[in-house]
Design a protein around this nucleic acid. Structure first.
Length: 580
DNA sequence: GCCGTTTTCGGCCCGACTGTTTTCAGTCG
């Protein structure tokens, strides 16, 4: 078993224990263990197999978890998990994927109403049977109905970053087969969509059965759903479906173009081809010639995507652009934007330290930024309203800034801005007084509380914050968490208009669960000339590695380096935010 | 269930707010 699979088992145990109202610290121990194992670079099997070492040397792994890991490595199953699963009806746990429904509410729904699936829960809410239960009311019922959409989506679509882990493992596995000459993942994964429904793997191989055998032998495969001459479909243990298509070399580019999509993009490409007497399919580009009542097709392109697009008079489009939005207009004008890349990024303007809920010191974060080639950062811990994260009041913040000054003096290659992630309070207004904010180099305004307020209320709060002359940027502008929480009901058009008027910046938060602003609003910000800042919101040094997810989202929004403020050299960035 | 140690068990980060309830579950980073 791989580390990821073992981590998944412990996560499942934690979920089931939580459902049974087990000791919360015991639940946490399993979750913590799963997290540690998931982040481990070295295979557990290697540590376990080394007589000189013990699994308990890993932080968070004690005698008990070490034994369970050994059992999993030896047998592939865990009796404790099997036992727990026998006690808890399948499906009940999926109920707690609904925001507002935790293990306790899920248990009550099952026990009182016999509900064990999202569909049954929806029906019960619609029939207003839920509001009668103890601890539930009409409002809860409404919340559940709203949350059901999130939960149902989460069941079928995986976040891009999670899919990437599967993709990396799958590609590495497939490269072990010498008959495979070319290998690409197509589909929405290649286009960089926020969430992925399934994976499409495209292969050019000299020996089709060998490629398919290799595919079927991927360790995460649970079941082979279909296997034909050119196509094979499997389902992984995680539930993700993966399609394999084997194509000849002369069709590889055409198939890659075809299966990358999007469908809407391809409809336009094929329409253009038709007008020119051509046909584009997943096998290639063909010229159609009518001769004596019969039509003849001649292959003219298909080895590479460039060849396919060129054959129909189009430039090669970066996959992130292929959504039938602006790309054909850009092509017609002869000017596809050069999309921003990770290498363009020079600064990271949103991160936390041990002063609030981060795990590393200012020095450590600056060193991590240096190691990633950045030339400036902002230290932006939480303000006092975020009490759970030990948010800073004015006094503690000023003390921290003195520390930042000191770090700045010792760092000649990374500039450190004195910043704050200041909460926008529920009743309106900023969480810190103006005289404190006035001393900051960089002020982020954020909504963390009162996310369920009305559109009017929440929009007004944000507009008021944007009017504050000390505020530089609005962080994660809609607060959504992919597959977990809907965006708050904010009028982004008004927010954007205010950002233009008051010359504020908007964040694209690179955390793979946030990625907010999303692609569509990034494109809108670009049209309005609002600079976007792509930030990691790192809570530890490794957290800075998520920058590339933000860049991918920005690319989907059609952003160039010029549209992204933190691609600028420090002096220019400083000028943009009104510093000296 | 882990950790640390004071070697046998107590602490584990935590406090305000909402909705619904009358004592608590869920949520926020």
């Amino acid at each position: 078993m791989t580390n990821q699979e073992i981590a998944a088992v412990f996560e499942q145990v934690a979920d089931l224990l939580e459902y049974q109202s087990a000791n919360p610290f015991r639940v946490r121990a399993y979750r913590n263990g799963a997290k540690k194992i998931g982040e481990l670079a070295e295979p557990l099997a290697a540590i376990h197999g080394d007589a000189a070492r013990r699994l308990t040397e890993l932080e968070g792994i004690g005698k008990d978890l070490a034994e369970k890991i050994a059992t999993l490595l030896a047998t592939g199953t865990l009796p404790m998990l099997v036992e727990l699963q026998a006690q808890i009806p399948a499906g009940v746990l999926t109920l707690s994927r609904v925001p507002g429904v935790g293990p306790k509410k899920a248990a009550a729904l099952h026990k009182e109403l016999g509900i064990s699936s999202l569909a049954e829960l929806r029906a019960a809410c619609e029939e207003q049977r839920v509001r009668g239960l103890k601890g539930f009311g009409a409002k809860t019922e409404e919340t559940i109905l709203k949350g059901l959409a999130v939960a149902e989506e989460a069941g079928v679509r995986m976040r891009w970053a999670d899919a990437e882990r599967v993709v990396d493992a799958l590609l590495e596995h497939m490269r072990g087969e010498p008959a495979i000459k070319q290998l690409e993942i197509a589909g929405s994964f290649r286009r960089g969509r926020e969430t992925i429904g399934d994976l499409d793997l495209l292969v050019d191989a000299t020996d089709v059965p060998a490629a398919m055998d290799r595919f079927g032998a991927f360790p995460q495969v649970q079941e082979t759903l279909a296997r034909g001459d050119t196509k094979m479909t499997v389902r992984l243990a995680s539930g993700l479906q993966v399609d394999l298509r084997v194509v000849p070399a002369e069709s590889f580019g055409a198939a890659l173009q075809y299966f990358t999509g999007s469908k809407d993009h391809n409809v336009i490409v094929r329409g253009r081809a038709k007008q020119q007497g051509l046909k584009v399919s997943d096998w290639g580009v063909f010229r159609i010639e009518a001769a004596e009542g019969e039509s003849k097709e001649t292959y003219i392109a298909g080895r590479t995507e460039e060849e396919v697009y060129a054959a129909v008079g189009l430039p090669w489009f970066p996959p992130e652009m292929r959504e039938a939005r602006e790309e054909f207009n850009w092509a017609a004008a002869g000017a596809l934007p050069t999309l921003v890349t990770l290498e363009d990024i020079r600064g990271d303007l949103h991160m936390h330290t041990t002063a609030s809920d981060g795990q590393d010191s200012i020095e450590a974060m600056v060193a991590a930024a240096r190691a990633r080639g950045l030339s400036y950062v902002a230290i932006t811990d939480h303000s006092k309203r975020v009490s759970m994260a030990r948010g800073l009041d004015g006094d503690r913040l000023r003390r921290q800034w003195r520390e930042v000054d000191q770090v700045n003096r010792q760092s000649d290659d990374v500039e450190v801005l004195k910043g704050i992630e200041c909460d926008i309070l529920e009743k309106g207004g900023m969480d810190l007084p103006d005289d404190v904010l006035a001393e900051a180099d960089w002020v982020i305004a954020s909504v963390h509380y009162g996310q369920n307020q009305s559109r009017q209320q929440i929009t007004e709060r944000i507009l008021e914050a944007l009017e504050n002359p000390h505020v530089d940027m609005l962080a994660h502008p809609t607060g959504r968490l992919i597959n977990r929480r809907e965006p708050y009901d904010v009028d982004l058009d008004r927010v954007m208009a205010a950002a233009v008027k008051h010359r504020k910046l908007l964040e694209l938060n690179a955390n793979p669960a946030r990625l907010d602003l999303n692609d569509v609003y990034c494109a809108a910000a670009k049209r309005l000339g609002i600079p976007i800042v792509i930030n990691t919101d790192a809570h530890h040094t490794d957290g800075m590695d998520v920058m590339r997810f933000g860049v991918l989202q920005a690319r989907r929004g059609g952003l160039t380096a010029a549209n992204v403020a933190n691609t600028r050299p420090f002096a220019e960035f400083r000028q943009l935010i009104g510093g000296e």
